[in-house]
Simulated assay, not measured.
Amino acid sequence: MTFEEVPERSKWDIPRTERDDPFQFGQRFLEDENAVWDHNAWDHVEWGEEQEIIAREQLEKQKQSPVSNFDKKLYMSNPSRYWDLFYRNNKANFFKDRKWLQLEFPSIYGKATAPDSGPRTILEVGCGAGNTLFPILAANKNPKLQLVGVDFSHRAVEIVSEAPEFDPARIKADVWDLADTSGRLPAGLTEHSVDFVILIFVFSALAPEQWMTAISNIDRLLKPGGEILFRDYGRYDMAQLRFKSGRLLDESFYVRGDGTRVYFFTEDELRGIFGQKFQIDRVGTDRRLLVNRKRKLKMYRIWLQARFIKDSDGDVDVSVSDE
């Protein structure tokens, strides 16, 4: 088995069947190993012993050659600098619009963008170049919807604000760090004013010691009954296993070649982090086998998806779903 990088911009070009349950994650099952090269992707591919052994061996190799202390201080001291450089180099060309949002997060479209939804505010943290904000805006039929996109990269916010799709009457964009410790909230938002917080491949960019600050900031922004919609990297994802020497910052926490950071979560970790403040509605693992049929390569992707809810009366219900 070979672990090879698949750019973020192409991973969602995979056909997905329509479904009502956003945690069902597709319906193409590999029932005959001899048919593996018949399609570009397979859903719900469980690992065998061989894959587990390879993954553990790869992680052990990474631990033998972590990032030097000098470089670690460099990468941890000013992480927004590396995202500024990323967006300066890639502009709006790296990621594709997330057209899968209606399948994966249908509550947005049922509760916020429908014509009769009423006043609603959606906050996307780590908005990047607007690949989540603009598809939501395009599908919106609610005249009272307000979209807010924040990123701690100044350049990312500039890209959103300068995009032809940007509508200042419907979207606000601001530079804001999810792990901000000053108490400042994004421009135009007050405490308990947000209906949905979207976290798509953004929580993984935080250092573990920033997690609880980030959770507290989200808690300040969400209305009672508000939702957190989460998608990020799962433990043993191909992107984790392909890291070579000199990239490991800490347990399951890495620095990419461009200086940006990434953490790979387990379901239990997410429950432990978010369960301290919010009800855990759903946590699921999306396992996908991507196939390069021309080169005969198998690439295993693992993503986690979750929905957390702020309790209406302020008390967290600890009897949560394990699904």
Rank of each mutant, 00 (worst) to 15 (best):
N89L: 07
A139Y: 01
I108R: 03
S117A: 15
I198A: 02
F201S: 03
L178Y: 00
K72Q: 13
L189H: 10
H154S: 14
T113Y: 04
L123H: 00
S80I: 02
A205S: 14
G126W: 00
F166R: 01
Y109V: 04
P119R: 11
F152M: 06
W176Y: 12
S107A: 15
A156I: 06
K96W: 03
F152G: 00
P186V: 05
G118H: 06
S117W: 05
Y82N: 03
L85K: 13
F94A: 14
R81L: 13
L178V: 11
A129R: 04
A138D: 14
A138S: 14
G110R: 14
L189T: 10
L178K: 00
A112Q: 01
F203L: 15
S77A: 15
K172V: 09
W211K: 04
Y82L: 07
E191D: 14
Y75T: 03
L123V: 07
I198K: 00
R98F: 12
H154F: 12
I122E: 00
I200N: 08
L101V: 02
G110V: 08
F95E: 06
F94E: 14
P79R: 04
K144S: 13
K111N: 15
F196M: 01
D116F: 11
W100A: 08
Y109Q: 07
D180A: 05
S80M: 11
L74Q: 09
K144L: 13
F134M: 07
V202G: 04
V148M: 02
